[in-house]
Amino acid sequence: MTETTERSPSAFHQHAGRGAFNAAFFAAVGPYLNAAQRRYKGAVFADLPEVVVEFGSGVGANLPYLTPGGTLIAIEPNRSMHARLRAAAARRGVHLDLRERTAEDTGLPDRSVDTVISSLVLCTVTDPAGVLAEVRRILRPGGTFRFVEHVVAPEGTPTRTAQRVLRRPWAWTFEGCSCERDLESAVRSAGFADVEVERYRLHTPFVPFNPQIAGIARA
């Protein structure tokens, strides 16, 4: 499939070593994580339209949910992800409109898209509220934001303790990723017309990452 690429100045400052590590890590671990999340992704990413905007497309973990022959507008500032993302899009027969921009500033027109998706992305952005405002800006009325994200664990639980103890090394390794964000509250307070959220827990060795939510927010 053909591909277009847009680059623009952004607030994302890529670390050469960690950027490459994360691209390799998610390429290797992605199939395992996808298997663990299949039920939840299958529900919220069902029946996607021909054109989808994805924040943090990474190495293409969510391409199997897109329609072959459709278009992915991929907002992915980490250049180390791009080669794998291009290859994955080509294998799936998806046209790739790759934008090396941050999720806070997509460059897309107001009310121009029907669906935005994200998975394991809002944990890493600098300004989650700003990203959600950008989602609302670019969605057409009635459009959907579909998300699968990991979130803060309840206070007093062993997982919450692990999140607190591992906060700094986790964030350093995964380029700012926070395990301590209440993203459900963030989405619910972002001004969407309707929000549906399912809370669940994965059972993986990545303990701080296991509390998760999946949902659909409608503009």
Results as ranks from 00 to 15, higher is better:
1 M>A: 13
2 T>I: 04
4 T>P: 03
6 E>C: 11
6 E>A: 14
10 S>W: 06
11 A>E: 15
14 Q>K: 10
15 H>L: 08
15 H>A: 15
17 G>T: 13
18 R>A: 13
19 G>C: 10
23 A>N: 04
26 F>P: 07
26 F>G: 00
26 F>Y: 15
28 A>S: 14
28 A>G: 09
33 L>K: 06
34 N>F: 03
34 N>Q: 15
34 N>M: 13
35 A>H: 14
36 A>H: 13
37 Q>V: 02
40 Y>K: 02
40 Y>H: 15
44 V>G: 01
44 V>C: 01
53 V>D: 12
53 V>F: 07
56 G>D: 00
57 S>G: 10
61 A>D: 07
64 P>A: 11
66 L>T: 11
67 T>W: 02
68 P>A: 12
78 N>A: 06
80 S>I: 02
86 R>V: 10
86 R>I: 10
87 A>L: 03
87 A>P: 03
93 G>I: 08
93 G>H: 09
94 V>G: 12
94 V>Q: 11
95 H>W: 07
95 H>A: 12
96 L>E: 06
97 D>K: 08
97 D>N: 12
102 T>Y: 09
104 E>G: 05
105 D>Q: 11
106 T>M: 02
106 T>D: 13
113 V>G: 05
114 D>S: 14
114 D>C: 01
116 V>E: 08
117 I>H: 00
118 S>W: 07
119 S>F: 05
120 L>V: 01
121 V>C: 15
124 T>I: 00
125 V>H: 00
128 P>A: 04
129 A>C: 03
135 V>T: 10
135 V>A: 00
137 R>D: 03
137 R>H: 05
138 I>F: 08
140 R>V: 14
145 F>P: 06
145 F>G: 07
146 R>S: 09
147 F>K: 13
148 V>A: 07
154 P>F: 09
156 G>P: 11
156 G>W: 12
157 T>G: 13
157 T>H: 13
158 P>N: 13
159 T>I: 15
161 T>N: 07
165 V>N: 07
165 V>P: 08
165 V>C: 07
167 R>Y: 10
168 R>E: 14
170 W>A: 01
170 W>M: 12
170 W>G: 12
170 W>L: 04
172 W>Y: 01
177 C>P: 06
179 C>L: 12
182 D>E: 14
183 L>D: 02
184 E>K: 13
189 S>G: 09
192 F>S: 04
194 D>V: 05
196 E>H: 15
200 Y>S: 06
202 L>G: 04
202 L>Q: 04
205 P>A: 12
211 P>V: 09
212 Q>A: 14
212 Q>Y: 02
214 A>S: 15
215 G>H: 05
